[in-house]
Design a protein around this nucleic acid. Structure first.
Lengths: 147, 147
DNA sequence: ATGTTAATTGAAAATGATTATCATTACCAA
DNA sequence: TTGGTAATGATAATCATTTTCAATTAACAT
């Protein structure tokens, strides 16, 4: 179970940063680490409440804040809004998002440094960070669209 | 005056799409076309009210909506939020944003198609759109930071 | 120029997402 | 086991954005 392992890694990180391990955080981390698509806070809240109907929305927001400060999750940006959340894989990977079903896959962005260097040279800026996301249709949704 | 020209181009586009040219739209378009940095709706509102204290925030939102549907402006995404607006230059240009003063410059993203093709091949997705933004320090802010 | 008409406006209220407050609960080190 | 304290959830508060609606005004025909 890779997911369980990832979840326990996250919990360990939370613990190292001085947080306590609670049942609420267990559930939230479990849902986030096994999600195959980006979630909005409200989506995540709904998923977690299936496991514990008592869990509060505020706790979801607070846990997301901590996970973000630990660099374990990232925001997903879309043209119509940017409230989605997805686990961050190691290294500098970028997201490819299916615009139909929301499925999300990450990929390596090779050779982007060349572009960044060129832009820095042309503009005089120092380029220190970047954000790249791709949008398209996943294999399943392509098949459904064709039929 | 390139800015005036750009502003009148935008107004013409609005007119072609069936909108009326009003003084409120004149002011909003003027501010947007000459802005050198990304603006939040509230920033834009404040700027416009200097020219007409009577102008309402709702009108700003409505005009932004129309300009966006015409493809004349684009959203600017940041890690901490995505409420900013910037004029869109022609073609497929991307934004480079100064994290200190907000100044914004656009650049051409050459050879990105190669990367997109590779990702499409590896994942089975069809890649149909992308979003790329760079963050850094503009020449002025770099100089100030060094002193 | 003038009147007509429908789009546009701004004020105020409504909405929806996120954050702050606070008494209660529960984790965990001693 | 217990005590200190972080964490929780219900509620209220905040902030950005939308909706509503009566009054205004640009565009067009006369």
């Amino acid at each position: 179970m890779q997911n369980q392992t990832l979840a326990s890694q996250w919990l360990l990180s939370l613990q190292k940063s001085g947080c306590r391990i609670t049942s609420a955080r267990n559930i939230i981390v479990e849902e986030l680490t096994c999600a195959q698509r980006a979630l909005e806070p409200a989506d995540l809240y709904a998923l977690c409440r299936k496991k514990d109907p008592h869990l509060g929305l505020v706790t979801v927001y607070r846990t997301l804040e901590q996970l973000e400060s630990l660099g374990l999750i990232q925001r997903v940006h879309r043209s119509d809004g940017c409230h989605m959340i997805m686990r961050k894989n190691d290294g500098h990977e970028h997201l490819l998002i299916c615009t139909s079903c929301g499925k999300t896959v990450s990929f390596q962005g090779d050779h982007l440094e060349l572009l960044f260097d060129r832009v820095a040279l042309e503009t005089g800026f120092s380029v220190e960070d970047h954000m790249l996301q791709l949008f398209g249709l996943c294999p399943e949704c392509r098949a459904n669209a064709q039929e």
